[in-house]
Amino acid sequence: MIELSHVSKRFDTEIAVDDISLRVPKGKFCALVGTSGCGKSTTLRMINRLIEHSGGEIILDGQAIEAYDPVKLRRRIGYVIQHTGLFPHWRVARNIGLVPRLLKWPAAEVQARVEELMGLLGLPVGEFGHKYPHQLSGGQAQRVGVARALAADPDILLMDEPFGALDPITREKLQDELAKLQARMQKTVLFVTHDMDEALKLADHLVVMRDGRIVQQGTPLALLQHPADPFVESLLGGLERGLKQAALTRVRDHMTSMGPTLPAQSRIPADFSLRQALSMMLRDHSDRLTVVDQHDVPIGELTLRRIIKEAQFDRGSSRE
């Protein structure tokens, strides 16, 4: 668990981070979102003490971070940065095994762990283990960066715009893989990004920062429904907000049981989002979809009227 209470950071006269408090419970994914220079990266680096905070308290697993030895603390925290920071003179396998070796794991265990992680991230050891970082594509290099951060199986993972330098397709792919990894490993993640879509897609908890302060925090859905001010609203995409909200809602949660009428032609899997459902309706000129399970067996239906009503209902219920 990561807990920040009233944390601030001053550089000489400038205040980079101003009295922020947030909590990332164990196993949760928290995204820090904001425009550049808002203090989000500084916040991240204060947690592994690359930057010492000047006020407030940062508590990891119930203990203030000052109580930890900085070097030992960092070996317990995974860290991923935008430009990977891989060592160019080390091969991929050696880069990944860095922290386990610092922790003096036996060589065979390091080797086994490196192979396991490379398999997990879709980089077969035989093909990539002996390559140098400059021989990798951007996406591959960042997978290595993630593998290196996970190598010693840390409970906490800090990620500083890890996918910011990748092309949109690779970025989306890595986001999907990260989401899958997270579902499986349940790390406590603090993820910095300026990309709201990325944050909405990955995070359990969203923190919006501006000028060193937290403007708003909450679940993605809560922020979409009630942005605190025009700044948060613009970050959330203004008019696109409705669609983004729909993207966070599953078809499964809004379908009705099959009516007496004939099932609609268009079929949609139950774990798709309402956004995808809307898109399908637009494409097929239909206001009704048949919802199917993973075996393509119809289990219910979804109507346009229902989607719109549900959206209103959500607004009403969350105001209470």
Binding site: L50, V71, R74, Y79, I81, T84, G85, L86, L98, V99
Partner: peptide, 17 residues
């Protein structure tokens, strides 16, 4: 590269390492 040095600190290498 500053990123490489930062990464090495962040991974828990001592200044001497």
């Amino acid at each position: 590269d500053a990123d490489i040095k930062m990464a090495s600190h962040a991974m828990g290498m001592t200044p001497t390492q």
